[in-house]
Design a protein around this nucleic acid. Structure first.
Lengths: 340, 340
DNA sequence: CTGAAAGCGCTTACAG
DNA sequence: CTGAAAGCGCTTACAG
């Protein structure tokens, strides 16, 4: 293999223990000994064997981040934040993609105790609260970005109900009266969709406005485009659409513009996630911007606490902040004319 | 820790070796013994300790994928493909972000021999061929997506010169005569920019057309937007722009539309990467679509060969395929009017 | 302040 | 076909 502690010890003329002390920065090593050892270390270009260290310590220095798919911009941006936050604890991050499939979420939850990671951050889509609560594995787990009630594990998210309420209020405040929600889903165990729907309904109800709800299977551009086409084909099309994420909104925008509608004059569009695409689309996209760095940092810090066993408190919910970012897709700005 | 082979052996009344044989699927175990062992394995819910296995075998079953940043859509899409391809070899993937910084690329290359991964797929930006050639580490390495001449390691990419040539020819074929290139860079050791620039120049030269080259620091939307503004401010603005990636093109599109120009009537725009954003922008974006699955698969397979030591051949260059995808941003379609 | 020894859990020659 | 033993490289009580 490579150079081992024993090789270094032999060259420096000390014991393996002493070399280990130097490598790990323990205090009580005499300067002379330390110098000898450090000389040998650099002469042999010693690298600790992490598998051996892990075997001994029961730690791997790695965590897993499991999310639906890396190529959804929201998850890509969030992953970046998680990797950066993990780096501060000198953790490496293994990324696993679930595709939002129950089977794969289960396999990851089950595989976690194979001892290759110290903990797991999971962005669950399909797996339910009961199932999570029933898991026998005690590997540290933090849930990120979807709400699971009666938390079986620490959980971080934004307040989805309030965020959805804020967006809807914004649209109402602009004078829109036929406001559709795009992105409801057939009941999943743990989705955000019901929460965003609840916030939307709350706001409409407070103003006595009617609701129009369109379902999708997945939160992707193509689904947003197709769902928007259905909305536009209805007898009384909406004058505003709150899309449950930015990808849906960008797909919907494409359909609206391609149909010759003006955004926002004919139909205002808002999303949620604040992915970078929406800052450069034409028109630019009004959205809710979750504080992704905060989400990631809280998730990583909670995982750290659990891994270190510093805490025995019951699982808790943590909220990260968000902002409503108003852009052209609801406020105009002259760039929004379709070609119809 | 958890259940060890010894626990299983004790319960089954056999030796540790026999349990190991069953776990690893070795052939010569009597049916009766196998049944006993399997009973004990499932009764104790045995999970192999991967650190121990790795220590013994000198393999970790993990590879690292190092790229500039995960939240650039091209890299997010490529990462997805790499993770999927790696899964076929039962590898897990650790993702590291370099930010395109020399210092961080070096640290990753240097850290690879810390034995936590069996191999590295690196998408280099800053590090040079000489430096790579001089590395003393023998951890398996495959370079992905940027060209480094006189390959110090196996390398996979598309033919950037030819791809750039194809895009430029397409613009020329549409009758454009003032075709700018957006995305040149100050000389980096290994960038794709010079290759794309070469293809662009070749095509222009073949038709006796003049060149206009705009530099950027990074391949991001904001840089594309700013660079496009500079182009539009010139005395004789281009009637077409070949942007060296899709993000630059989407930024440029935003600037053009915001300035009231029609795309493609006033200025045609093309990119390279085929990220999903460009399939839903208005107008949709003409681009080069590299075969990302093929890129990922070749990279992973090459790494596998190196790790397994099946090959001692010198480093080689591999080309993946690509397609020119013509969309509205060069062909029109009526959706492209700015608001000027 | 330093050393000799045990042991983390696994796999692998080596016997039988 | 199965077992007893060594050893991968490290850290950690335990002595001195």
């Amino acid at each position: 293999m490579g150079t081992s502690l024993r090789d270094v010890a032999r060259l420096a003329g000390v014991s393996v223990k002493t070399v280990s002390n130097v490598v790990n920065g323990y205090a009580h090593v005499s300067p002379a000994t330390r110098a000898k050892v450090e000389g040998a270390l650099s002469q042999l270009d010693y690298r600790p064997n992490l598998s051996a260290r892990n075997l001994r310590q029961g730690r791997t220095g790695m965590i897993a981040l499991a999310l639906p798919e890396l190529d959804a911009p929201y998850f890509a941006e969030l992953s970046r934040c998680v990797i950066d936050a993990a780096a501060e604890h000198r953790w490496l991050v293994i990324i696993e993609q679930t595709g939002g499939a129950l089977e794969r979420e289960r396999r990851i939850l089950d595989g976690v105790r194979d001892h290759h990671v110290d903990g797991l951050i999971l962005s669950p889509v399909a797996v339910g609260a009961e199932e999570l609560a029933a898991r026998t594995d005690d590997t540290a787990l933090v849930l990120l970005g979807e709400r699971i009630y009666d938390g079986p594990a620490d959980h971080v998210a934004i307040d989805n109900v309030r965020a959805a309420h804020d967006v809807t209020e914004h649209l109402i405040g602009l004078g829109r009266r036929r406001i559709a929600a795009l992105g409801a889903q057939d009941d999943t165990a743990s989705g955000t969709a019901p929460l965003r729907l609840a916030g939307y309904r709350e706001a409409l109800a407070a103003h006595g406005l009617p609701e129009t709800v369109v379902k999708v299977d997945r939160y992707q551009r193509a689904e947003g485009a197709a769902a928007m086409a259905r909305l536009l084909a209805s007898p009384e099309p909406p004058d505003a659409v709150f899309c449950f994420n930015d990808l849906l909104a960008l797909g919907a925008m494409r359909t609206a513009l391609a149909a010759g509608l003006r955004v926002p004059e004919d139909v205002a569009l808002a999303g949620l996630d604040d992915i970078e695409d929406g800052r450069y689309s034409t028109p630019t996209l009004t959205t809710i911007a979750p504080d992704k760095n905060q989400l990631a940092r809280i998730a990583v810090d909670l995982l750290k606490q659990r891994i270190d066993g510093h805490t025995a408190r019951p699982p808790q919910e943590f909220m990260a902040g968000y902002d409503l970012i108003v852009r052209e897709s609801t406020m105009g700005g002259g760039l929004s004319r379709g070609a119809g």
